[in-house]
Structures are given as structure tokens and as C-alpha cells.
Design a protein around this nucleic acid. Structure first.
Ligand SMILES: NC(=O)c1ccc[n+]([C@@H]2O[C@H](COP(=O)([O-])OP(=O)(O)OC[C@H]3O[C@@H](n4cnc5c(N)ncnc54)[C@H](O)[C@@H]3O)[C@@H](O)[C@H]2O)c1
Ligand SMILES: NC(=O)c1ccc[n+]([C@@H]2O[C@H](COP(=O)([O-])OP(=O)(O)OC[C@H]3O[C@@H](n4cnc5c(N)ncnc54)[C@H](O)[C@@H]3O)[C@@H](O)[C@H]2O)c1
Lengths: 213, 213
DNA sequence: TCGAATTAGTGAATAATTTCACGACATTTT
DNA sequence: AAAATGTCGTGAAATTATTCACTAATTCGA
């Protein structure tokens, strides 16, 4: 639960990646893996990987590497993969529909439970097994949900955010270009696809031709 | 063109954000803006904003702030907003379709010119004004396109990547979970939506309740 | 069993990024 | 015209992240 002793943020961001990759190795039946192999496959420096793992203690064995099953089990606990995290999605448009059709639970403890939209034509539909409710029902339908995915038009973003926060949401994955304002206890991660595309183009034009992602 | 003198990567990643925000201010008719105002709106420390701008010289005026029109013009040039960058998209599924329906050109110099898919049912369609071709036609249709958006199933990612690189693509925005392998001169930016969601949940559970995105 | 090869873990160095805090100057007010 | 206020640009400090390079432990092949 609490502030898990000083794991650097950069490390924390890589944990889900490690988890998924280990999961794949496990499915493939691999029993062991070295930081060098992980490095090649994930394009992350092997020293960085070892350092990241070391924040959690000595998980490997010298001369051998890491036991995949053990490591996977460890990360499963660390990432709370055993308890499911329910999520709601607001705005069943182009992006929102794509997300509803995607099974996040596959590699993940998260599940989109319901969706909301203002468009009556969409209300009542079931997309990817997820029912779409009218946004007016938000307050009454929400119960113990702390994570929301926001895919409404930019103009609606702040208003919907305020309502979500009011309903007890403390984490928002925001796909709108709006830089929304929230109280201190609410965490927002922005994914700004237009910026990502523009950024890629900028890096291509202005940065030397090699590594990094 | 070339390695624009040592702009830190962290700064470079924020440039498109600044650009879009300044553009909005300009549309709203604002003539001036201070780093403090930008900070409040974009949730980036004002010292960071001033530092970022300072890499390009003295763009502001003490006691006044920044002239929106001037700054916008400056960033337009810096981000090469005058020349259009053509882009292709591979994989017209859930995500791919969402992107085709989105007008990236609105705030952006990028335009998706064509899309490709392996599914004959999709070939010939026009989505968001963008024609969908069969993936077999990739090699013959591609001409002077250096940027690709990859939204195919994970199993296809490496194979398609190899073909794209062969066709001269030097930048890939990769939405598949695959960590694709490319030659040194090709830049890949990964956007891993499942990881982003899982990461948000992890941060909510393990990090103190305040700032940062 | 021995010796070569492998590989984790980590102190220390380096690099990158953010933030503080203040001087210099421009604007605005009175 | 002077004073008060606002705000940039930036050295320096602080923080955060990455990478080097070595030691110690273990494995593996002969
Ligand atoms: N589609 C993309 O590729 C893309 C790319 C970059 C950014 N975005 C951003 O993502 C967001 C969604 O994009 P999209 O293309 O899916 O838009 P969209 O217009 O297709 O979907 C928006 C949905 O939100 C619903 N909506 C409107 N007001 C609402 C409200 N008050 N409450 C609940 N639902 C409401 C609409 O009915 C619609 O279904 C936008 O902010 C857009 O800028 C999208
Ligand atoms: N949809 C999401 O919300 C979501 C979330 C996270 C990750 N992703 C990833 O994004 C990618 C796309 O997801 P999606 O939901 O759009 O999948 P999808 O199955 O809906 O779409 C994939 C499309 O690629 C096409 N395709 C298959 N093989 C091809 C080939 N060789 N050449 C060209 N086209 C080919 C298919 O015909 C299909 O139209 C996947 O890798 C997925 O893991 C998607």
C-alpha cells in the first residue's frame, strides 16, 4: 500500500514492462533469463535492469541470472496483480470505443467495468462486453471506482474531471489535450497522442541517428 | 535540420505542448503571457519553462513576459510547422480506425496520407478521408514517406517493421506491445497503453498523494 | 574436481533534469 | 520622475537517473 520505500519513479514506470515480458517468457516455458537477455529484448541497458531489480532486494543468482517463475511471482505481488482494479471510461467515441474493444485484463489487473457517454444513441449499447450508460447516471452508478479513462472532447474534459473527482476518483488517464486541474490527492497521467506524433517528427529531424525511445 | 545545438531531450519532448498551448492563446487573442501563467495552465514548473525557452535564446522581456505571437512564430519555425510531414498508418483495426478519424493536422504539421491493412474487407474503404490499401501494395505505394504509425497485432509488428524500414521509413510510432528491433538510424517511440494504465494504478497505490504527471 | 565463463549486485562516476533564488531590467502606478 | 511591482534569464545547488567497472558468487564443461 504505502510509499514503497523509495523506488525511483523511472524504475516504477518500467515495472509493468518487466512484468509483461516475464509473463511472456513464462508462457513460453523459459525457466531462466539474464539481465543481458532482458536488455536485448526490451532495449533497456542491462545495468539499468539490474539496478531496477536491486531496489527490491537480491532477486537473482550470480552466474545464473533470474528464475523466471520466481521473478514473475515477485512482480505479481509487487504490482498487486492479484487484486483486480476496476476502471470506468468516459466518452465512447473513436478512441473510447477502441479501448472498450481491447482486453486490458489479458496482461493486467485492470478491467473496464462500465462506460459513459452523453450521446443517447450510444447509451444501452454493449461494446466489448462493457455496457454504456448515460453520463447523467455517473453519480449514481459509480461505486468504489477510483480509476477513470478520459476520452471525451477537450471542451468537456475539465467538467467531467470535476465530477469524477467528486465521485471519489483518484486516478485519471487523460487522453484529451486538456491539462486538467485536480486536487492534490488525484493523480493524472496524460497521454497526448498528437504531441507524441509531433515529438517523434521533431526528434527525427533534430537528433543524431541512433538509440533511445 | 541537423542536431539543433544541444536541446535536452526532456525539453524537446515539451516543445509540441508549448506550441499547441501558444497556438490556443493566439486564437483566443491573448497578446502576452508569463511563465507563471503558462506554468499554471500546463502544470509545468515556471522555472522549467523559462529554462526550456532559454535554450533558444532570450525570447521574453523582463517585467513583461513573452509576446504570444512572436513566441508562436518562433516555435513554428523551430518545430518545422511550415513543411507538412506525411505519415502512413499500418493496421486499420480498433486503434488504427480511431486515429484515421482524428485530424492530427489541426494543431500539427503531420498528416496521415494512406493506411494499409491485410484484411480485404477493409481495403478500398476511405476512413476519415484516408484511403485504405492492401498491405501487399505497401512497397509500390510508398514514396518519400519516412514516418509510420504501427497499429497491427503484436505478432505482425516485427515483420511489418522490417518492411517499413526497407521502404525508407526512419520513424515509427509503435502502439503494439512488441519491442521492435530496428537499424540504428531508425527512431522508434513506443506508446504502450496497457503499460500506461497499469503504471497509473501502481503510482496511485505506492506514491504519496500529490503533484506530478 | 578444476578452471574458465557467466552474471548479479553495487559503489562510484557521470549525466541529465529540475529547482532555487537572485540580479537586472521593464513596466506600471502614483 | 520615483517607487513599487513584475518577470526574465541564469548561475549554482539539488535531485534524479544512467552507466561504468569491478567483486563475489555460481554455473558449466571437461
Ligand atoms: N481519436 C484520436 O485518434 C485522438 C488523437 C489524439 C487525441 N484525441 C483526443 O481524445 C479525445 C477523444 O477523441 P475521439 O476521437 O474519440 O472523439 P469523439 O468525438 O469520437 O468521441 C468523444 C465522445 O465523447 C462523448 N461525449 C461528449 N460530451 C460528453 C460528456 N459531457 N460526457 C460524456 N461523454 C461525452 C461523445 O458523445 C463522443 O462519443 C478528444 O479529446 C481528442 O482530442 C483523440
Ligand atoms: N485497442 C486498444 O485499445 C489497444 C490497447 C493497447 C494496445 N493495443 C495494441 O495495438 C495494436 C492494435 O490493436 P487493435 O485493438 O487496433 O487491434 P485490431 O485487431 O483491432 O487491429 C489490427 C488490424 O491490423 C490488421 N492486420 C493484421 N495483420 C496485418 C498485416 N500483416 N499487415 C497489415 N495489417 C494487418 C488487421 O486486419 C486489423 O485490422 C495491437 O498490437 C494491440 O496490442 C491496442
Amino acid at each position: 500500500m504505502g510509499n514503497q520505500h523509495k523506488i525511483p519513479q523511472a524504475t516504477a514506470k518500467r515495472l509493468p514492462l518487466y512484468y509483461r515480458f516475464l509473463n511472456n517468457l513464462h508462457i513460453q516455458g523459459k525457466a531462466r533469463v539474464s539481465s543481458k537477455q532482458l536488455s536485448d529484448a526490451m532495449k533497456i541497458d542491462s545495468a539499468t535492469i539490474r539496478r531496477d531489480f536491486s531496489y527490491f532486494g537480491a532477486l537473482g543468482k550470480k552466474g545464473y541470472g533470474y528464475n523466471v517463475e520466481y521473478l514473475l511471482g515477485f512482480f505479481r505481488k509487487t504490482l498487486d496483480q492479484d487484486e483486480n482494479t476496476p476502471v470506468i471510461l468516459i466518452g465512447v467515441g473513436n478512441l473510447g470505443t477502441a479501448f472498450l474493444n481491447y482486453n486490458f485484463t489479458k496482461n493486467n489487473n485492470t478491467k473496464i467495468e462500465m462506460a459513459f457517454d452523453a450521446d443517447h444513441a450510444k447509451v444501452g449499447e454493449i461494446i466489448g462486453n462493457i455496457p454504456v450508460h448515460h453520463i447523467d447516471e455517473l453519480e449514481e452508478m459509480m461505486e468504489n471506482i477510483s480509476v477513470a479513462i478520459l476520452t471525451v472532447p477537450v471542451t468537456e474534459a475539465q467538467g467531467i474531471t470535476d465530477r469524477l473527482v467528486e465521485c471519489g476518483v483518484t486516478g485519471i488517464l487523460n487522453f484529451t489535450p486538456a491539462r486538467i486541474t485536480v486536487p492534490e490527492h488525484v493523480r493524472v497521467h496524460h497521454i497526448d497522442l498528437a504531441v507524441e506524433l509531433q515529438s517523434l517528427v521533431y526528434f527525427m529531424k533534430h537528433y543524431p541517428l541512433d538509440d533511445e525511445g
